[in-house]
Design a protein around this nucleic acid. Structure first.
Length: 309
DNA sequence: AAGGACCTCAACCGCCGGAGA
DNA sequence: CTCTCCGGCGGTTGAGGTCCT
């Protein structure tokens, strides 16, 4: 048997609040406070509403310090950062945004911000060994991560046979984020997807892209380009992903579900950032937990700058 | 102009944990 | 220690608005 309801649902009004009800509740709370008991408040205030409904109405709409209207770019960044750190703990995230409620933040994330991030073009670009290499610097947003390595002299670091392949985030003069991982390839995230990339993932990405028949050579300097963008799509589904195996790079609908050769799946479906990569050669960890990981080469790009394409 | 699809966001639901009896 | 009550929270719903065909 479940818990008894908090109020007599047959005798309380439900649905949208009228201006009169708003005024009654506002006047009562401003005059008397909540009295520490929301359940008893509607009766005292003369409202035919559930106490929980009164509390919600006050917290989300009537209280004086509430901020209505669009979110700023700065607020977007804060939400993204905190979501990457703590997931859907909306009240905790909202507490860092003065005047915003958990409901506001949750709605904003679910209806706009998630799609906004997904819509950003994600482009992986591989360069050949003969390409001109960018001058490099450490991304300032990553300098606090002591696991991050940068390449100052040789852009193609040698590999230690006994250690996982290194993933080396560097910035070129235009602040484009590049990732080097072996002697033959650099991956550039012209516009990066936030997420957590393991060296195993990046190693696989480089090797798989190199063998991919789907690489698009879309420029004149022999730099093959793989684009994961959803450009041209009128609507963006909630789950967009690419799957990789030993032989190709393809969209999952083109991939047989029973294909046991699949090595990994990168899911851009926002479980973000928690469902980025998994598979026999990959590892699945939460951003906030990687510091204690046994994989010291994990790189957190949650704070990487995103620049318009 | 109409109607269907899609989007937004206020409101509700039900679970959980803390406080106090 | 157990039980009850209540506030707080995240997930979900659905009415109303907007866009698209």
């Amino acid at each position: 048997m479940g818990r008894a309801p908090c109020c007599d649902k047959a005798n309380v009004k439900r649905g949208p609040w009228s201006p009169e009800e708003d005024a009654t509740l506002k006047n009562y709370v401003e005059t008397h406070g909540t009295g520490g008991n929301w359940i008893a408040l509607p009766k005292k205030a003369g409202l035919r509403r559930c106490g929980k409904s009164c509390r919600l109405r006050w917290l989300n709409y009537l209280r004086p310090d509430i901020k209505h209207g669009g979110f700023t770019e700065e607020e977007d960044n804060i939400i993204c950062t905190l979501y990457a750190q703590m997931g859907s703990r909306w009240s905790a995230i909202a507490s860092k945004l003065p005047g915003r409620t958990d409901n506001d933040v949750k709605n904003y994330w679910n209806t706009k911000l998630k799609k906004k991030i997904m819509a950003r073009k994600v482009t992986l670009k591989t360069l050949t060994h003969n390409d001109t290499l960018p001058s490099t610097s450490t991304p300032s947003s990553l300098t606090n991560n002591q696991n991050v390595k940068t390449s100052q002299n040789s852009p193609f670091p040698s590999q230690n046979q006994n250690s996982p392949p290194s993933v080396l985030p560097v910035l070129d003069a235009n602040n484009a984020l590049f990732i080097t991982n072996n002697e033959k390839s650099i991956i550039s995230f012209d516009q990066t997807h936030h997420g957590l990339y393991s060296p195993q993932v990046m190693d696989d990405v480089v090797s798989q892209i190199g063998a991919s028949s789907r690489i698009i050579n879309n420029n004149n300097n022999n730099n093959p380009m793989l684009s994961l963008s959803q450009e041209g799509s009128s609507s963006i589904s909630d789950s967009s992903s690419i799957a990789m195996n030993n032989n190709n790079v393809s969209h999952p609908e083109q991939q047989h579900a029973s294909d046991e050769s699949m090595e990994m799946l990168m899911d851009f479906g926002f479980g973000f950032p928690f469902d980025f990569a998994n598979g026999p050669n990959c590892h699945y960890e939460r951003v906030g937990e990687f510091a204690t990981s046994s994989y010291p080469e994990w790189v957190d790009f949650s704070y990487a700058d995103i620049k318009p394409h």
